[in-house]
Structures are given as C-alpha cells and as structure tokens.
C-alpha cells in the first residue's frame, strides 16, 4: 500500500496512472452514484461510471480498459457537472480510452475505436471530413453495407450528401501535422 504526499492511501499503480494522466483525483469518489444515475448511456454499459471508478481503485486495469463502458460513453459531461466532489469523470473516460488504445487491449466495443481511427485517417487524407467517403470507409471495415442505406438515399435526394470531396490547399500541411503527432514528436 502506497501513501501519497497528502497521506491518502492509493495502493494501485493503475489508480496512480489514471490520476497522473487525467489530472483528476478520483480518490474523492464516495460512491454516491450520481454519475451513473444521470448517465444517458448507462443501460449500454457493462460497468456503471461509479463502478469504473471503484474498479480503477482496485487496480483492475484489464477489466476497465477492456470494458464496453469506456467506448459507449458519449462524452456528454453530465457526470462531471453533477459530481458532488467535482470529479471530472468525462475527462477520466478520455484518459481511459487513450491508455486502452496505447495498451493494445481488445476493446469491449470494437466498432467505436475503429470508427474513430477511420475518422482521423479521413482528416489526415484531406484535412476535412467528406461524409460520404467517411461512411463508405467505415462500412468497408465493418462490412455492414445495408445499414441506413435508405436513409442515405433520402438525404442524398435532399442535397445533403456531397459526392466529391472539396479541393483546397491545406492538404499537405495537415498530413505533416498528423505525421508529427503519430511520431509523438510534439509531446
């Protein structure tokens, strides 16, 4: 069991990792469950927000990083604004996703991180999101070609879907920016 400078028990290197990286002190949680009560996506979670905090405190790294919960969190910030102890849990969820990706742990919701990666690749390619290309590239990864095809057609008819991406001059600059961050050079 470790003690930090304020004399609080920490006892888990995973807990310390989360506190250090998120800069949010989740030791202040007293399990009132207000975060879980207000969470709009709690019914799709395999671990409620308050349980995620408790599991981090227990040091259950693999269980937390491999959970569905961290990927179905919609980043709505309701938990953060309602926490009586000012724990910015939405920020903790971001940190958990970052660590999960870096650790290479298999995601509990596999399509969500795949979507994020396709989205970022699209920005890297052209600097802006061309929605039709994004959707087609994502469908190539998930092989679910028919989902929302009818809706796509309705939106196309209403002039909401552009066939071709825009052409402008920042493409090379944005590729270089991505290359810098992928190498971790700016950090």
């Amino acid at each position: 069991m470790n003690m930090n400078e304020s004399g609080m028990q920490t006892g888990s290197s995973f807990l310390e990792e989360i506190i250090r990286e998120s800069n949010v002190d989740i030791r202040a949680c007293y399990q009132c469950q207000k975060c879980s009560a207000g969470c709009p996506v709690v019914s799709a979670m395999d671990m409620y927000p308050n349980q995620v905090i408790r599991q981090i405190q227990y040091g259950r790294r693999e269980k937390v990083l491999g959970s569905k919960s961290i990927w179905v969190c919609a980043s709505c910030h309701t938990c953060s604004v309602r926490c009586p102890n000012d724990i910015d849990f939405a920020k903790v969820m971001d940190t958990l996703r970052h660590i999960a990706l870096r650790s290479g742990i298999i995601a509990g919701e596999k399509d969500v991180p795949v979507f994020h990666m396709v989205f970022l690749e699209s920005i890297k390619r052209t600097g802006r999101i061309h929605e039709l290309s994004l959707i087609l590239r994502f469908k190539l990864k998930t092989r679910d070609f028919l989902k929302d095809a009818g809706l796509g057609w309705q939106m196309f008819r209403r002039g909401k879907i552009k066939i071709l991406p825009q052409v402008y001059s920042a493409r090379r600059e944005i590729k270089e920016l991505f290359n810098t961050y992928e190498k971790g050079a700016a950090q």
Partner: peptide, 22 residues
Amino acid sequence: EDWTCCGSTSAHCTDEALSVAL
C-alpha cells in the same frame, strides 16, 4: 480560408495532443 477539421469526438477520444493541435 483553408480551414481544416476540428478533430471532433474522434480526436479527443484517442489522442489528447492531436485534439488540441487540430
């Protein structure tokens, strides 16, 4: 002129530094 994507949800969910840089 020459604006680029803000990075949206996908940047802040995956890479904090990139989510600031974009």
